[in-house]
Simulated assay, not measured.
Amino acid sequence: MTTTTTGDIEKAAGVLRAGGLVALPTETVYGLGADAGNPAAVARVFAAKGRPPSHPLILHVSGADRLAGWAADVPGTARLLAERFWPGPLTLVLRRGARVPLAATGGLETVAVRVPAHPVALALLTEFGGAVAAPSANRFGSVSPTTADDVRAELGGAVDFVLDGGPCTVGVESTIVDVTGDTPSILRPGGVTREDLEAVLGRPVAEGTASRIRVPGQHPSHYAPNARVVLVEPENLLAEARAAQEQGHQVGVFLPPSLADAPVKAHAVVAVPEPDDDYARRLYGFLRELDRRGCDLILVSLPAEAGLGAAIANRLRRAAGPRTSA
């Protein structure tokens, strides 16, 4: 249940117009929003998150009819995908329009844009009238927030206003697709699956692992809790947990359905569902829960990478990535 009122929407739009920062709910995760056309406001987003300035932001608009000036052109493939998946968890990489400051794109001549499928976000975008640049509302590299309380706990006073739209329903970030070339390419898996995209387009969609276009979520360490995350093959999970616990670690375990009835020697255990909507929606909550329970090590097995399993596995790999400086 949301606690957002019409007055809250009007206040949040006023904060954006004044160059302030607003945390807003989307169906994927909570975003830290600023007026996309205001370079000073955009700079505040980077400062609040501790985000490297070379990492582009995603622009949010209220509809595909609001792309004028933000995107230089919208090719047919982009129009087809937007018609099917907007509002929704799909971000399209387009040529940068004249209204987009380079500060919001990390210096690139491309821009990432989407229309969120959350009534509070859409109400704010409609009231505001422009584009809102909004990465996830957390410190750079850490677990993305899926509730307003997550935002308040992590960013506190760095946010001028928090819109509470209730828990996010998708729970992992949007799929990012580059549509600037001849072949659409997934730069980040997310809430729209590869299978969904290919069904609409009627042709294969590439995986842009070698793309030179920078987009959010490509840093080696991302979505990371305080505890160290280690990837373990399912058949080794119980033995690795027991050994780490005996070595003095406070071990947290993501227990897959295949091991649901197995005895686990660990400090804390979360039973994860099959790699579907429920797992994606609860993923970041599981990581935050094991942090709250005092774990210093989290052992997890990757799910099968079909459907939403691809996005879940992507997030877990990056959560387990090397934690070097940006």
Rank of each mutant, 00 (worst) to 15 (best):
A271Y: 00
A148G: 09
A43C: 01
I58L: 10
E83S: 15
R317P: 05
E240I: 00
P145F: 02
G69I: 14
D277G: 04
G191K: 12
T183R: 15
R203G: 13
V253P: 07
R79I: 02
G14V: 00
R288Q: 10
A12M: 11
R96S: 07
G20A: 05
V159A: 05
G190L: 10
H60K: 04
L122H: 08
P56V: 06
A13N: 05
G248I: 04
W70S: 05
R228I: 15
A12Q: 12
V100R: 12
I176W: 10
L122E: 05
G191T: 10
N38A: 12
E207G: 00
S54T: 15
G217L: 12
W70I: 12
R317D: 01
M1V: 15
P167C: 00
L80V: 15
L94S: 11
G88L: 09
D182E: 15
D164R: 11
A243Y: 00
L316E: 01
R293A: 12
D149L: 13
D8S: 09
D276S: 11
K265T: 05
G88T: 13
A121L: 03
L238E: 01
V229T: 05
A131P: 01
L201M: 05
V151H: 06
R17K: 07
V264D: 02
G69Q: 13
A134H: 01
T4L: 03
L122M: 10
A199V: 00
V120Y: 04
G7T: 12
A320F: 03
F140E: 05
E195L: 03
L102P: 00
Y284M: 14
A13F: 02
G191R: 12
Q218N: 12
A310C: 01
E305L: 01
V74I: 14
L287I: 03
V29E: 10
P257I: 11
H249C: 09
P225Y: 04
V93T: 10
A306E: 15
G33N: 07
T5D: 14
G309Y: 03
P257E: 08
T183G: 00
G33A: 13
S136K: 06
A137P: 07
R228M: 13
R281P: 04
L125W: 06
A311K: 02
P220D: 07
A18V: 01
R315W: 08
L287K: 03
L290E: 06
L16Q: 06
S258L: 11
D150Q: 11
A117H: 15
S142A: 11
L59G: 12
V42R: 06
A304N: 13
R44T: 01
L163F: 03
T183H: 14
A262D: 04
P275M: 08
D149A: 15
T26M: 09
F161W: 07
L308N: 05
R228W: 00
P216G: 02
T77R: 07
I58S: 09
A268C: 08
A224W: 09
D277N: 01
A320N: 09
L297P: 07
V215C: 09
K49I: 04
A271W: 00
T110Q: 11
R317Q: 03
E233I: 02
G181P: 08
F128G: 13
G50E: 03
G285E: 13
A36H: 04
A121M: 01
K11A: 15
R315V: 08
L81Y: 11
W70A: 06
R315K: 07
